[in-house]
Design a protein around this nucleic acid. Structure first.
Lengths: 194, 194
DNA sequence: GTCTATAGGTGGATAGAC
DNA sequence: GTCTATCCACCTATAGAC
């Protein structure tokens, strides 16, 4: 781990709690007081590590994207077939949902209009990362005959991301996670059928 | 119009402004003060018409769903082909997006965990209405050979709704409405191809 | 129906002691 | 690094005059 990413224990715990709060309640529905209560510290302590909520939010997304990129690298290392990679990719989102959470950036996207610019940029970065990885998998799958779809890979990648975020959003609000599995199952079938 | 739905002018204007605020900023990012400023009245006046924010929110969704049902009835009256109905249905969402807004219930779904139960019930009601209408259109389209899809109509209907909400969410957060059009275009093509 | 005035609470954020 | 104490802005909501 690089020196730049070494963080004090309280800072790490703050990020973990804040992440969970954003994913379950949304950016505008959590406060420094919520985190302080969970950690057993005061809000002044939190402001020492993260001067502003905007800064905390930015680092939150950055960390989330970095961890996500790590998971994508693991998939690339463990599987060679495009359709298997796509399945595991969907599995990443399913795991988040099963943990009772919304995708961090999906949750933040809903409040995008109220967020500071740096946070909006980080959110785009996360979506761009998804799009790039998916595009590569789709290109590979199309070439090998493993996956089937019409039009540009980029558009198909965005389509997949749209479904994942939408299915999470609706499944959570309806308290029925099986809806996510049925929708993503349909999605996978669509790309795996000639 | 039934007597029960007649509302004082200020109440009507309040609902219109509040709706726009929720759709653009989210439930937890707007206040009675925002509405009061827009209408040129005091917050006390708003509380006369809507005692609590929860009550305002509930009536907001109820009104939205009622208007939406009216639009669905219009579609049914104007078109007979299932694929044409489906196109117009997607057009309803496109219109909301083009107005710079998120679907009201999609926006609220993101904050669902922080909402009072009556509001959550109204949100479900909206999604159920979508699902029921779509299921009927899909059943009809499959019967006439106008639409093509695998599995239960209900699952396909939910799949469509998931994409619409997800595509809106991402398109808005990326400030690129054309993404919505490309994803929904792909969706329509999927159901119209044998 | 709308106002003034205000209560009671919580929000993010800071100064300065330890 | 963490604390106590505090500021000021904003929130939802209410009482009572007009």
């Amino acid at each position: 781990m690089s020196r730049a990413s070494i963080k004090a224990l309280t800072a790490q715990r703050t990020l973990a709690v804040a992440e969970q709060l954003v994913q379950t309640r949304g950016y505008n529905a959590f406060s420094y007081a919520d985190i302080a209560r969970a950690l057993g510290v005061t809000t002044a302590t939190l402001h020492y590590h993260f001067p502003t909520k905007a800064e905390l939010g930015k680092q939150l997304i950055n960390r989330y994207r970095t961890q996500f990129e790590g998971a994508l690298i693991e998939i690339d290392a463990a599987y060679s077939e495009a359709r298997e990679k796509l399945k595991r990719y969907v599995g990443l989102y399913a795991k988040v949902l099963h943990d009772g959470r919304m995708c961090l950036c999906g949750a933040l996207a809903a409040d995008a209009a109220t967020l500071p610019k740096p946070m909006r940029s980080e959110i785009r970065h996360f979506f761009d990362t998804n799009e790039a990885w998916l595009s590569a998998v789709l290109a590979d799958g199309r070439k090998s005959g493993d996956l089937h779809f019409e039009g540009p890979q980029r558009d198909a990648a965005r389509y997949i991301l749209d479904i994942l975020e939408g299915a999470m959003l609706i499944a959570r609000s309806n308290d029925d996670f099986s809806r996510f599995d049925r929708s993503t199952g349909r999605l996978l079938a669509e790309f795996m059928t000639a």
